[in-house]
Design a protein around this nucleic acid. Structure first.
Lengths: 184, 184
DNA sequence: GTTTTTAGTTGCAACTTGCAATCTATCTAA
DNA sequence: TTAGATAGATTGCAAGTTGCAACTAAAAAC
């Protein structure tokens, strides 16, 4: 039979490689975090992050090129350049917080001084969560990969798929098996 | 006094650098994703990811050293080594999905196949979200950095003291760097 | 007009990446 | 029990990346 080595280059069908192209760079997330924290200028990033000038220059240019930061000289002092998060940049907030919460859960004990809170009640936010379409919080065991034609139906109850994977046994949640090759 | 800006060491008080120490490496997230997808062996990762042997070896060792993967020779064939996600590894799922969803939102058109669904109703999951302590979905504009002594008080009268994250749905808290606000 | 500030570039050494070939331990088959 | 295949890891070398330090360039301040 033919070679079934179907490179899971469906991997390239997923958003992850694209995201990592920008955010996989060594300092990108730290710069992003500094931006979320209200830093806007070259020398600010430089001193707060302890990054080398050339690398910072390069990373900022990269983030700008990818539309995550906006680069604009200040009106009052045209030497100063403001780097500001775009909407695309702000959309990275869940990813950054999730990483951060993970690091916090498994890192050494940390006493945080400024705490990130919900503005409404000033209580610390909860964990970044995977939600179902209707807002239930999902864990890894609730997830599963399925072919588009086997998707559930919202209201009219036409569930036509035999359950292949057990809930916890061979939890093939996310097990990708469909065929598709990109290279040879 | 007056300048509330705190220096670099505050940055190291946040979970992000710790998380990036492992997951900031070039292939870590892709290997993690392959693991989520049910791959367990060296040669599987090798062919599916198209990564170099030495790099894969190195990254796997790194992920094992950081407790994200478990490394165990198979009982029946002691040449074969099984790499399996630990709980710590599974806890990276929200971060990975958030990144992936972001990449998907802003990347080139992608037809996701297979689709990640909620096992209960087989409908595609919703976006990874930042939740308040009581489950409301928060956006960047709902967030604020605050000093611990200015935290709100919960309905039951207990103070929300920042601590580590519990298993699920516990109170979260994220340190900020400077005394600047997160919101725009 | 000289100096200072802000952002960015260039030179060079140290480190990291990744392909190809090699190595070790184990399993299988004659 | 030796030959051969297989799984994983290691080494050598070329190419690329990182980062310190010193330098340029332009706008602002003096």
């Amino acid at each position: 039979m033919g070679d079934l080595r179907e490179p899971l280059n469906e991997l390239t069908d997923c958003g992850l490689p694209g995201a990592l192209e920008v955010m996989g760079e060594r300092w990108s997330f730290m710069i992003l975090r500094a931006s979320f924290n209200g830093l806007h200028h070259f020398e600010e990033f430089l001193t707060e992050l302890g990054i080398a000038r050339n690398i910072l220059s390069n990373r900022l240019a990269n983030l700008v090129a990818h539309g995550i930061l906006n680069r604009e000289p200040c009106a009052d002092d045209k030497r100063r350049i403001e780097y500001r998060l775009t909407e695309k940049g702000f959309d990275l907030l869940p990813a950054m917080l999730a990483l951060r919460q993970w690091g916090q859960k498994y890192g050494v004990e940390i006493t945080e001084n400024p705490v990130l809170v919900d503005e409404v009640d000033r209580l610390p936010i909860g964990p970044v969560s995977i939600l179902s379409h209707d807002g239930r919080i999902l864990g890894p065991e609730d997830l599963r990969l399925t072919e588009p034609e086997n998707l559930g139906v919202r209201a009219d109850g036409t569930t036509a798929v035999p359950g292949k994977f057990g809930k916890n046994g061979n939890v093939a949640h996310l097990a990708g098996t469909s065929a598709r090759a990109v290279n040879g």
